[in-house]
Write a protein that binds this DNA or RNA. Structure first.
Lengths: 124, 124
DNA sequence: AATGTCTGGTATCAAAAAGAAACCTGCTTT
DNA sequence: AAAGCAGGTTTCTTTTTGATACCAGACATT
């Protein structure tokens, strides 16, 4: 079988779409270090809505990247943890995050230069 | 300065949002090997609309990851190429793509298992 | 001179996805 | 009985995305 994410309907495309995602990168970055409960994750991921977190977690669980464990405490606590499969991805995702941090000044300079050059030629 | 992509408004978050993106990963994966013209890219990236390609390229150019060069041929040809900054990212993006290919069977199995377990408990 | 062709886009409109906020459930404490 | 908490789901609005049509410049053809 020749898997090819450049083909629009190849399963690898869907997987790439899941892992090449802002929230996945940040979320697995957290779970890589320690399991965490739903609302705690929500507090860590600034800007993430409850609905999206629910969807992303469900998707990652289905793909076998995280596990969901409900403990019968009161009130119930649900802990999400990364799987061994998920761990095989964390180093790469960590590089994505650190690239953003390491190169942010360069990118911001490029943006300023671009915005300066294109100033006044928006379209009319 | 303490850059932190976990903060919703940190510039690094915006950069992460751009690089942790399906189309960026696939597009830079192509440009990493050779420069390419607009319509040729469009043909390579199955499922990508002209509008999105235009937007993604503009954004990547602004961030200094690709360059745009218009040649006065007839008709005009516009070539997009990766920059040295963009090259510093390609190895990581390549790992993302290959992870998807290398682990697709595992993921598909996890999906089948999940779908089997949750069968019939959708909600009513 | 009008027509057609090619590249590299933009404009417009419909559909899908994401965000915000309210609501729900099960269980306990006040 | 009312309120509180965790972990969600529903509903509604706003943003993104996708599909399609259209446009411009520079020729070449009829």
């Amino acid at each position: 079988m020749e898997w090819n994410p450049y083909a629009g309907t190849c399963p690898t495309r869907f997987v790439l779409d899941r892992i090449a995602d802002k929230w996945t990168v940040l979320l697995l970055g957290i779970l890589a270090h320690r399991p965490m409960r739903f609302n705690a994750i929500l507090r860590e991921l600034d800007g993430l809505s409850q609905k999206m977190l629910s969807q992303v977690l469900k998707s990652l669980e289905r793909d076998g990247l995280v596990t969901r464990t409900a403990y019968p405490t009161v009130p119930v606590s649900v802990e999400y943890a990364i799987t061994p499969l998920g761990q095989t991805l964390t180093a790469t995702l960590e590089k994505l995050r650190s690239w953003a941090v390491d190169n942010i000044e360069t990118v911001l300079n490029a943006q300023r230069e671009y915005d300066g050059k294109t100033l006044g030629q928006e379209k009319a």
